[in-house]
Design a binder for these strands. Structure first.
Lengths: 168, 168
DNA sequence: CTTGACTCTGTAGTCACGTACAGGGTTTAT
DNA sequence: ATAAACCCTGTACGTGACTACAGAGTCAAG
């Protein structure tokens, strides 16, 4: 164990200031401990060094990696995509072409989705106004909804895993 | 069994043209069989009549109900909300006040979300343009992502279960 | 009366992204 | 040397809206 500690210290001096244990990394990065382990299991984080006792020892670079992951997530990339990007990078290629492709697709999706949302907003607001004016009639569940045209709901709505629940 | 069949036929003549079996209802409504059973279990569809053998026999009104559900879904209501609306209606009250409330909330959410999406779009498109101009540098995974400001991602992103995966 | 299409119940699995234990072992400060 | 604080693995749970399946029973046509 002294050996490992020494190694960690050497690293701390020579290569990096210090190795982080999972709790420190969690605090510094804002990513929960469980999530860190989950990322490791999912291949988003490399398996870190360990102490003799089995504790994970992260290099400080991991903070950069995590920042990358968070940013990419905020940009709407799924963990699977992020993983792929990282893997491409590791294989020496520049993943940016791929990233660019994804981004272009995302932009297109986004535009479609925003158009749809505008339509939807119009519908909702229109229905609301109408209802305000007319009051509720009998014999149906709610005219507000029943009166809404549906005109064959757009087929999409898949693949925009984007921007869900990236906390903080 | 003759009794039930007779009842079904009476219904077919007197009240409604015919009772639908689950497969027919599924085809006519476009809602999968399993989903229909799931809706029943979730309280979105009333328990239908049954043949002696236990087959579900749906009144044609069920099509209206399903259309209602689909429309509400397209409008961004969750199944839980839809269920509540239907329940309120059954209890004699007009759910429209409640619906209106939900709709108002939805509109607000929607506006926020659209604003966020516009921001996001700008970020993405900006990053893309920048990348196109600058080419890729070394030493990082992808400047496209790494260069993106993150400025503390918006806290929201919850409660807009809206418009996900309403198929067809 | 038999065949094949249909339907039944109940349980389990899917997706994405984690969170929450339980039941241990390790490190560190005193 | 001991207690507090930390960490380990593995599994199960949570969401929302379904989908899949197994194994059994029912219905309509020929």
């Amino acid at each position: 164990m002294t050996k490992t500690v020494t190694k960690a210290v050497e690293q701390g001096r020579a290569e990096r200031r210090r190795a982080l244990r999972i709790g420190e990394l969690s605090k510094l990065s804002g990513v929960g401990i469980e999530a860190l382990r989950f990322y490791e299991k999912s291949g988003l984080l490399d398996r870190p060094a360990r102490t003799e006792g089995g504790y994970r020892l992260y290099a400080e670079e991991t903070l950069d990696r995590l920042a990358f992951i968070r940013r990419a997530q905020v940009l709407g990339f799924s963990l699977a995509e992020i993983k792929q990007i990282i893997a491409e990078r590791r294989e020496g290629g520049s993943p940016c072409a791929h990233v660019r492709e994804i981004v272009r697709g995302r932009l297109k999706e986004l535009d479609e989705r925003m158009a749809e949302m505008r339509r939807y907003r119009r519908e909702l607001a229109g229905a609301l106004a109408e209802w305000d004016a007319a009051g509720d009639a009998e014999g149906h569940i709610c005219g507000l909804i029943e009166g809404t045209e549906i005109e064959h709901a757009p087929a999409r709505e898949r693949g925009i895993a984007a921007r869900r629940k990236v906390k903080r």
